[in-house]
Write a protein that binds this DNA or RNA. Structure first.
Lengths: 141, 141
DNA sequence: ACCAGTAGGTACCAATTCGTAACTTCGGGT
DNA sequence: ACCCGAAGTTACGAATTGGTACCTACTGGT
């Protein structure tokens, strides 16, 4: 902990903001800073479920991402050793991205998050249905 | 899945960007959109480890956050039912924030992420030390 | 001859974000 | 009398972000 009187620090304050002068050093800081990036989890999830893929393939799957973003995200993930980049200098160059072993260590957490997310979603849907029904009863009285 | 030809979707593309027109509906989408917010995990972690706290207390602990950000983040977390806000209209008003049951469901994942983060950190440190030693050997030859 | 696709890099531009500063209300300390 | 703190809200402004368009080099299809 570099800042005084702070014993918690999980994500990062400026969150990829260039400043982050005294970047509080906490276990979750780095990892969340990584997963937090826009599109990041899409990409990781995709690489996990569809296996190693080429740039264009990935771009087609992660609907809506721009080449710039995808490149930038992949470079970041590569720098974090979560993704491996294989470059083949064939004439139309062929670049394949895959999860590294470290990248696969997140499978577990990702799955768990997905499970929680799904549960909440169904719970919320049930609650909404409940409230809608209640409102209808009230309106019909 | 609202967008065609997309079977993956985890975080959100514009990531809290107001657009998000066709917000791809995926289990992790909502949850990560939440945790991804700047400071968010700091706050959750803090509320978990230090229990219910008042606004000022929280602000003092989450070093560097501005009142505006803290307010905004807490409102968002409240909206997501992860945090409960207790307002007492005493003369200096007293507002206490605490994790809801739903908020506590993340404890597990947070702990796991922290564990992975810590492991990676030590691994990286070990690797750096290794490389430094190797470089020194080479320089001394 | 011309366009598409591969895997990007670069410049520009709009929008969003986040911090700072000022304001609120009320009571208590000096 | 004056300022501070509680817990914000609001306005303003500066910086970052991320999309679009255009560029690369090379080849295969029509």
């Amino acid at each position: 902990m570099t800042t005084p009187a702070s014993d918690v620090s999980v994500a990062s304050p400026p969150a990829s903001k260039a400043k982050a002068k005294e970047s509080v050093t906490c276990p979750m800081d780095f990892i969340l800073r990584m997963l937090m990036g826009p599109w990041t989890t899409y990409i990781l999830y995709n690489l996990r479920t569809h296996g190693p893929q080429r740039f264009g393939e990935l771009k087609r799957r992660v609907t809506g991402i721009s080449a710039k973003m995808l490149t930038e995200r992949l470079r970041t993930l590569e720098g974090a050793s979560l993704v491996k980049r294989d470059y083949e200098a064939t004439i139309p160059p062929k670049v394949t991205y895959s999860l590294t072993q470290r990248g696969h260590e997140l499978d577990d957490v990702m799955g768990r998050l997905a499970e929680i997310g799904t549960r909440w979603e169904t719970e919320d849907a049930a609650n909404r249905a409940m409230r809608a029904a209640a409102a209808e009863l009230k309106a019909a009285e």
